[in-house]
Amino acid sequence: MNVIISSIDFIYNWARSNSVWPLTFATSCCGIEMMQTSAANFDIARFGSEVFRATPRQADVLICAGTITHKMAPALLKLYQQMPEPKYVIAMGACTCGGGMFTDSYAVVNGIDKIIPVDIYLPMCPPKPEALLDSLIKLQKKIRKETILDRPKYIASHVSDLKIDEDSEFLIKDSGIILQQWGVSGNLQEGLAYEF
């Protein structure tokens, strides 16, 4: 039995780790480094990841390249929820890891791990293309460690406790309380889904 599971695991993990298709999600300057990674000098295609899909339905990894503002947060969560399992997240750049130099800004989410679960944190501002490739290799190593038996646990850990309210597109918690509100002028009102 163990032999069967380990051989299935091997094929399953080999296939998934060698074709990690990223989602085109570049919200600011780290996106330039991401483009450079897929360009000729550092060629992300060597790892089979040059297939940048525009739709989350066909992507495996969300490379969040750039600052996530509070306004952008629901969109990020929506994109993450639209991705099919198995899905991974690379937080690229200091802004996505922990707020970066905008930590004390009123408009920036201090780390996307407050919204979605993150697999690989990649600091620096912005990281070198080599560093992004290194994080991709680390993600591949992480994928290869998984077994098919852990799938339910894995899926449970990859569900965000936040939801998007269908009418207002605000972030809400499971209890249904609206935690993020935007006034007409775009000012942030009381109650946030995450502290900043």
Binding site: I11, Y12, W14, A15, R16, N18, S19, A39, A40, D43, A45, R46, F47, G48, E50, V51, D60, P84, E85, P86
Partner: peptide
């Protein structure tokens, strides 16, 4: 560029990995 060259010799198994992955996806 060099194109896929990590999966198998000269990247020959790249599409096979892609196909298996697409079949495994939700």
């Amino acid at each position: 560029r060099k194109g896929p060259n990590r999966v198998g010799p000269w990247g020959l198994f790249q599409t096979i990995a892609d196909a298996i992955k697409l079949l495994c996806k939700e």
